[in-house]
Computed example of a mutant assay.
Amino acid sequence: MTTLFEPTTAGDIALKNRVVMAPLTRNRAPDAVPTPLMATYYRQRASAGLLITEATAISHQGQGYADVPGLYAPEQIAGWKRVTDAVHQAGGKIVTQMWHVGRVSHTELQPGKGAPVAPSAVTAKTKTVLIVDGVPTFVETSEPRALRADELPGIVEDYRRAALAAIEAGFDGVEIHAANGYLLDQFLKTGANQRTDAYGGPIENRARLLLEVVRAVIGAIGAGRTGIRLSPVTPANDIVDADPQPLFEYVVRQLGPLGLAYVHVIEGATGGPRQLDDRPFDYAALRQAWRDAGGKGAWMVNNGYDLALAEQSLKGGADLVAFGKPFIANPDLVARLRQGGPFNPPDKATFYGGGEKGYTDYPALAGA
């Protein structure tokens, strides 16, 4: 039987095990520039088969939270190069999660303090983070404006440029963030997309922007270095779709022939229940639709996994298992999973913002 600790591949990326560190926003990149402390943080966790960075804005417009990193300026690329060098020196593999937040932003974070952009002018009933008197502070998102159709090619180009920047920065690949109620997920789902043009209405139209982005990124860096993250039913950031099963089965059927390195699926509510009573979803059927459409990349599962559930999922057909919060407090999580613990408890007060405390000061196992 396949185990969590066996090597595998995700497209063109060879992995020493099937443990993935999921993206975790930590708000420790002032002015959107990755710091040397971030290089230490990721290097400490390089025993994972694959590290996926915290979500990283593809443009100033794509920025939605204070002190999160970007991938659109020379100093950001240089900062990330320090991170990737550190991870590679420690024997790890790392991809960056490319992010456009869409409506989940605030005018204070936008170019010229303009309105955030979205498929439709529907405000997200959620919060974002600003730095107020030096302290990360949750605030309501700003009212967005609807993107014009003639602006969408520019956003696709921003993704393409960010993918090229990621390779310049030394990443082994990229993950397109199409989950958790951010821009691409907003276009997919009826709760945020009220458009009546070629990017709204039927499933094919709502999936159009996502597929344009995927093809552009593949054209820039190759399918074998391109992954995507999806969250069919999470309510994160006030997102909902009236009928997610056919929507996401359509999406993965379109993605199947493209040769992606992996598909990363959040099962249930991000950071919450794995199944929601009001939003049932068949993840096995989704994976089968991907395979039936020619999807040969890795199938990555995520949300609330422990060792037993991970092994069960691998037995059921998954290829990779992503762990999020456990990696915050356990830099050597792979070793701890292998021996069944013990596991450090996380300090929730240090999740967002700050310095070394609760970031790079968690102890490793003796000898690890």
Score class of each variant (00 low, 15 high):
T2G: 03
E6P: 11
V20Y: 02
V20S: 03
M21A: 09
Y42W: 09
A48N: 12
L51M: 14
T53H: 00
A57P: 05
Q61F: 11
Q63W: 13
Y65N: 07
A66F: 08
A66D: 02
P69C: 02
A73P: 07
I77Q: 02
I77S: 01
A78R: 15
A78P: 01
W80N: 03
R82L: 14
V87G: 09
V87I: 09
G92E: 06
I94H: 00
V95D: 06
H100D: 13
L109S: 11
K113I: 01
A115I: 00
P116K: 01
V117P: 05
P119R: 07
P119K: 09
V122N: 07
L130W: 02
R145M: 01
V156K: 04
N180L: 09
I203T: 15
I203R: 03
A207V: 13
L209Y: 02
L211E: 03
V213E: 05
V214E: 07
V214I: 13
G219D: 15
G227D: 10
G227R: 09
V233K: 01
T234M: 05
D238E: 12
P246S: 06
G256T: 01
H264R: 04
T270N: 08
G271H: 08
G271K: 04
Q275F: 13
D278I: 01
Q288F: 04
D292I: 06
G294C: 13
G294T: 02
G295S: 05
V301F: 14
G304M: 05
G304W: 10
Y305K: 04
D306F: 02
G316Y: 02
F323C: 10
F351R: 05
G355M: 11
G358Q: 09
D361T: 04
